[in-house]
Every structure is written in C-alpha cells, then in structure tokens.
Amino acid sequence: MALSKQKARWLMAQKGFLDMLPLNLAVLPWGILCGSLAIQRDFSVLEAILMPLIVFAGSVQLVSIELIANQTSLLTVLFTSFIISSRHFLYGLALRDKLKKLPSKWRYGIGFLLTDELFALSGHRKACVGQLRLIYALVAGGSFYIFWLLWNIVGVVAGSYLPDLTHLGLDFAIAVTFIALVIPSIINLPVLVTVLCAGVLSVLFKLLQFELDLVAAALIAMYGGYLTDRWLQRRADKNGNVVDKNKTKQGIS
C-alpha cells in the first residue's frame, strides 16, 4: 500500500529524530560543561546563552570561553575559532552538489545546522536529496540544535552550583559517540586506511601542537583512502579483463 505524502513526511521526521537521539543524549555532559564554564568564567547569562544559540559549536565555545576569560586579543579568539571550525569546509564541499540546488531557505537552514553530528548522519548517497530526505536532515539537525541549547541552559542555570567540570573526563562522551559512528562505517579497505591514517596523524600532529592538526590529519587520511580506492580499482580492472577473456572463450567453445 502506498503511503500518503503526509504520513511519509511524518515517518521521515520521526526517523530523523530517532537517529539523532543518541547523539543528542551523548552531548549532555559536553553541553552542561559549556554552559557552566561560561558562567564560572564570568560571562553574563545572555552571553552564555548566545553561545549555543548563534555560535552553536561545542569545541569553539569551550576554547573561546577560556580565551575570552583570559583576556586574549579579539583577533586570536577569532583566528582560533576559525581554525577549529575549518573542518566544516570539508562538510560543505562533500555535500555541495546536493545542497547548492536547494531553495535558499532550506540551504541556509541546513547550512546553519551542519555540525559534525548532522554530517555524520548524512553519509547516504542520496542524503538531502528530495523533500523527504530534507525533512529527515532538518529534523535530525534541528533536534540536535534544540538539545544542545537545552543542555547549555542547564549548565548556565546550574553553573554557579557545579564544581569545575573541565577535568572530569566529559570529553570521553564525545569520543565514544564518534567511535559508535565511525567503527560500523568501516565497510571496505579504503575506509579502513582512512581511519587508521586519521588516527595516527591526528595524535602525531596534536603532540607536535600543530595548529591545523585536525584538518591536516583528515585531509591526508582522505587522500590515503582515495589512493587505496584507486589502487583497488586498477587491480580489479586487471582481474576483470582476465575474467572477461575467459568468459569470451567459454562463450566461443
């Protein structure tokens, strides 16, 4: 039986919400940390809430709160935010061909919501293609925005009662979420090579205190995955030719 359009939209919205739900829950400690840190570093309530409301980026918030509290120059704060946020260029590029055709309202919306988490759920070949998949992306990304805001507000409200949370190991919640997303996505050799390269290089660059550590490690790892894919392709082409010849022979005999 064919689904009515409205029912299909509702189901897609539900799926978007449910797929993002574990990530929404996983950022609870991180969001509370960001909210409470802002209050503990003497940000006003308005400033502390504007962070998740318009900046909407966990690592940028966390790092910039410390920088601003330490009276760092505006230029340094902005440059650091840019460096941390620069990985998003890759997400935009990867989804460019699908998103650039959208009406501007959708494009600005999805663009604003394009976090690590939403991008992680946009790996499908046809992600964001067609109204139903757009609804999925909007609900998934939108729910992440609302939960992020909510956890930050909890942190802002509880901030003055909470101890300093920065050394409690709350970043592990982020790590385990990404483990849960990345490991099942390793379905072939090129992805495995990408993940191994990214893991080794990101640790190395971090230890070297290289400013663009994350993006540099990711770019080199992506190239590693790409080369592996090309190598497999070439090998398959060679073998494929042999198989084809055999087939022709069999066909003739």
Binding site: F172, V182, L214, M222
Partner: peptide, 17 residues
C-alpha cells in the same frame, strides 16, 4: 576524495581525546 571526509574528520576528533 570527499566521500572519505566523515570517517577522516570524526576519527581525527576522537583518537586524540
């Protein structure tokens, strides 16, 4: 090349943690 961006970036975030 860009199709490997998700595993690459997410891994480069979690492994150093």
């Amino acid at each position: 090349f860009l199709s490997y961006s998700a595993p690459a970036v997410l891994t480069a975030i979690w492994v150093p943690i």
